[in-house]
Design a protein around this nucleic acid. Structure first.
Lengths: 291, 291
DNA sequence: TTCAGAATGTAGCATTATTTTCAGAGTAAA
DNA sequence: TTTACTCTGAAAATAATGCTACATTCTGAA
């Protein structure tokens, strides 16, 4: 069944993806992105959408096992007909070819519900206020996470580090935390993640930080961490999932939206920093060659 | 609103049906019978199916208010696209009280699109096979990430560590990687994250690991990492976002679904390990009180 | 760096699709 | 039946699509 000349167009693309060239991959993505409609126009239109040349499209049709572009198009039409005429259009499931009960579909359902509910109750003023805080170059930013949410803290830190300076990731070991609190002054910002089970140490850290005059931005779940009473701004994300654990997807989502907003706010500087960073990476590579 | 030049093709046909001639009605029936696929081929093919001549088809396209047959065909494609692309009701806006243009809404739109497209082309057999690999207690699991995707690797590691033993997180510093490869044997599994810009070191690690007989499970983006040629199983996630960076939300999603599936597969042991872990945490706290 | 080989795009051509023209068939009224 | 009219399809004219050959660019190895 690993023959080239069998299966749907999409399957063939996936199967051969590794053997495809750069331009062909670009084309594949366009075709899969709006499948199968994008492949039903003229070869020229498809080529233009994918920003490749028409011959590239024709060549790929050959690679996929068709006699030419029109033949592939006919295959697409036939597929489409089969899909549309099947009794219950299978657009109900997220992952095609999987039953509704497959974990992927159940998860997709849960995650989009979480996202919808979270966004519905999310306070935009809070969001914008946090963007302002994180964009302010005069403030020191500290980031801290818990046992699981440490990865989220790390993710935020990695990105913020590119956007601006004065960002510190507080390590997991709470023994060292007082040293960090010692340096916090009025106007500084502590971004903390506290998802159930809530960690007592995080609560203490939040308390100490606010006492020093720092502002607390707290990421927590729908039940709310006890540290929330110290928070200037908070995000309560829905984290339910068909699993023994909670889902961090929505938190990741808010993080990325925040990062994007801050990056826009400080675009000039961000761009310069990214450019410099590129150069530094290049020099690192050079350095490695000599070792 | 009874103008000729508005509404879908089907609506226009219905509206004008009374004024259509004999041959045109024959044609209409064929078009509506297998709507809209039958209208997506060539004018000749459609004419033959309906047992009318090509000019009849062209004339009807004009009657329906289009400039010609190709124009009508474009309209059909556009309709189809609209139908297919909103299997899950598109929200006018996700975050209430925010304009569509707010970064939160734009991000929500992008992320759900990414999720839908990724799931559509995700290979279920691959998914299930990876679940089996990660559930197999006799295999050593190694996890490694790149500069940004390190957080994802970390997240997977943290959870897998609870579910099973023999899980190792390979640190970011590639100098130490050979030591880890040294220990890999046939049947071991390396889970690697390689999102653009693809890291050369990751590619090398994948190569070395597979040469040792390890199986590679690769998380990459829609363009495909060069390391993919060594992978036994791969996940290509869509990562587009309205931001200078890529979105990791979909990758996080797949990770969590994987974790949930593995946890289900090994539920007995997972539950015991979680229980034990709880007790260990309690003892840690106790220990701290004495210091 | 240089060079070979692959990948990609440009241009022109053959092919195919679409439209126009026009002749014949069908239809209804006188 | 005739006549005027519309409808329809065959065939030619026009337009476009898709393919081939070739030139250029890119990539990776020596």
């Amino acid at each position: 069944m690993s023959e080239t000349s069998s299966g749907t167009v999409a399957e063939r693309i996936s199967r051969l993806f590794e053997t495809l060239t750069h331009a062909e991959r670009k084309l594949s993505n366009v075709m899969l992105e709006n499948y199968p409609v994008s492949g039903l126009g003229t070869i020229t239109a498809l080529a233009e959408t994918a920003e490749v040349s028409a011959p590239t499209v024709a060549r790929m049709a050959r690679k996929l096992g068709y006699g030419g572009f029109p033949e592939m198009q006919t295959a697409l039409r036939t597929e489409l007909e089969a899909t549309l005429s099947s009794p219950i259009a299978k657009h109900d499931s997220w992952a095609a070819n999987a039953p509704d009960t497959h974990i992927l579909n159940r998860f997709a359902e849960a995650v989009t519900d979480n996202l919808r509910q979270t966004l519905q109750q999310l306070d935009l003023e809070d969001f914008d206020a946090v963007v302002d805080l994180l964009s302010d170059p005069s403030r020191n930013i500290y980031v801290v996470g818990g046992r699981i949410s440490r990865s989220m803290a790390d993710y935020l830190f990695t990105h913020m580090q590119v956007i601006r300076d004065r960002v510190t990731l507080i390590p997991p070991n709470s023994n060292t935390w007082p040293h960090y609190v010692l340096n916090m002054t009025v106007g500084d910002v502590l971004v903390a993640f506290d998802i159930r089970r809530y960690e007592h140490d995080t609560h203490r850290l939040a308390e100490m930080a606010t006492e020093q005059g720092a502002q607390l931005v707290l990421f927590t779940d729908q039940w709310g961490s006890p540290a929330a009473k110290h928070a200037s701004h908070g995000f309560r994300a829905r984290i339910e999932a068909p699993s023994a654990w909670d889902s961090s997807v929505v938190i990741m989502f808010i993080l990325e939206a925040l990062i994007a907003a801050v990056e826009t706010e400080r675009w000039e500087e961000t761009r310069n920093r990214m450019k410099t960073l590129e150069q530094l990476f290049d020099r690192t590579k050079l350095f490695r060659k000599f070792t």
